[in-house]
Every structure is written in C-alpha cells, then in structure tokens.
Amino acid sequence: MVKFTQEMKEALRVPGKGGSLVYLCTSSRDGKPNIAAMRFVATHMDDKILIADMFLLKTKANIKENPQVAVAICHPLEEGRWWVFKGEAVDIEYGFPRDFDWYGANATDILDEWGNWNKSEPPDEVPPDIVFPKAVQRGVVVVHVEEAYSIEPGHTGEKVL
C-alpha cells in the first residue's frame, strides 16, 4: 500500500492552486495507448488520484475495458515533480450506486465533494483560447495508486512509491 508524500499531494492539485497539469495515460485492452492532459486533479485519502470526467472520450472507453492507468506530471517538471503514478481506475459517474466502493473510496463522498469541480475550482488560469465555454461533468475518475516511478533524467524507472 502506497502513501503519497506531502510534495506529491501539493503537486496533484489544480494548476491554479500550485498543482500540476498531468497526463492521464490509458490503454485499450489489447494495448493501444492513449494520452490526454488533465487540469482537474486532486488527491483523496493517501493513495487515490481524482480527475474530473468532463471531456473524456477514448480515455473513458479505455478505462471501461481496462482499468490500468498511469498518471504522469506534465507541467511543471523542474520543481522535482518527476513522477509517474500507476494503478487501477474507475470512472464514478452520476448514477453509480451511492454506496459503490473503490478500494475504500466511497462514490457518495467523491461526487459530493468533486462532482461540480468547475464551480469549486474554476479554470481561471487556463488561457482564453484553450478554456472551454461550458463544462459538463459526468463523473470523477478515481485512480487507486499501487506504485510510482521516477521520470527524472538519469533515474527513469526507479521506484518512488
């Protein structure tokens, strides 16, 4: 069982609060990879990464057929945030049974706190030519992290959790 460090918790927040843009990497069941940048990110408990399901397409389809994911810090990297987190993910969408449990994370708790993320942490730092006109959130991706490794030059692949 892993436990995030304080630095990791600070990095895994929305960029507007000092956190990071992350890449959520998924794969089809037969191994076709997919990588997409995510802004709405948070931690829950000591070993869960949360990501908003707002515009997910292939990512969502992949998670439904294959829960194995990797979350990599995209920006900024030079602050020592050279991490890739690996684990299993589920997309807790509205309509899930309220008592659904994912490795100790409860669907009601997740959706109550992060189900309207655009309102609680609006994307004020996102440039106007990138920001979306209207956010429609369908759920929250919950990644149960089982390990993490470094992508720092010279140390790639070394376990950090």
């Binding site: 990588i35 994911v69 990797a70 990599a72 992508i151």
Partner: peptide, 17 residues
C-alpha cells in the same frame, strides 16, 4: 511525454526530452 503499453494493456510513460 511518450506512452507505450504492453499487449495486456499496462501503460508506461517516459520522457522524450
């Protein structure tokens, strides 16, 4: 950021600096 995956669907990321 480069993403590759095993045939069983396990993804890995490395940097293409």
């Amino acid at each position: 950021h480069l993403c590759v995956a095993t045939l069983q669907g396990e993804p890995f990321v490395v940097l293409g600096r």
